[in-house]
Amino acid sequence: MNSSRVPIIILYLTLVFLVGPFLVVFIAAFGGEPTLKFPPTSFSTQWFTKVFEVESFRSSFLTSLGLGLMSTSLALALGIPVAYALSRFRLPGAVVIQTVLTSPALVPGLVVGLALLQYFINLGGSVYPSLLAAHTALLLPYVVRVVSTSLINLKPDIEEAAISLGASRLTAFRLVVLPNIRGGVAAAAVLAFITSFDQVAVSLFLTGPGVSTLPISMLTFMEYNYDPTIAALSTLLIIFSIGLVLVFERVLGLSRYV
């Protein structure tokens, strides 16, 4: 064997290791047996029907979707101004600001969840706001990092020109900067949404009555059931992420931002 082929073979084997298990889940999801089996000995689509029949999956999917959209919007609303300020102004103490803003990415999710559980109980807060706060905090570092990258790549000359022609900084931002960093903002939104949607550790302590996220419902369901329903649901989630990656890789070149 030609030794120069070794790296690419290792690459392909790694890809099989990364993606192969998904194929197994796909196949297991179509099994006809009442317990999970691989390879299945009969064919059925009943587990996909069951995914939609389980009430906790339906309600927690909606919760996850709403939570993902809300926390993403909040993180964008809070994060874009920060990214702009950090890339366009010389702020005293910029290092401190940056450290504070990246801190949610450094603190383990379980710790965040536990801390917020204790904090929000003392405040008498309910479940949803604490989940929303935790997710938003978690997403901020991603938003700031991705949007900052786009802003740094955008030369300040054009907006300076607009400002010198009499536009206010806000107008310059709206008309000049925002359209040019659209890709970055969209990529930040997608990454943030996915991060929230898939989040387990932070949510684990914070879910409560009537408010459970999809990953937590899956874990609870798995605790008591050993049938292919989770395989079917996983299949749907994998297809969802493949779709998302393909669309955004084509439109934005997502790989530049990950």
């Binding site: 297991a28 691989f38 990953p215 989770i230 996983s234 990656v245 890789e249 990950v258």
Partner: peptide, 24 residues
């Protein structure tokens, strides 16, 4: 395509990804 194959697992629920190993 190769890049997409590396990114897809990153974008997939860790519950779904771990579940696969239970089967395997």
């Amino acid at each position: 395509l190769v890049t997409a194959l590396i990114i897809v697992p990153l974008m997939t629920s860790p519950v779904a990804r771990t579940y696969a190993w239970l089967v395997l």
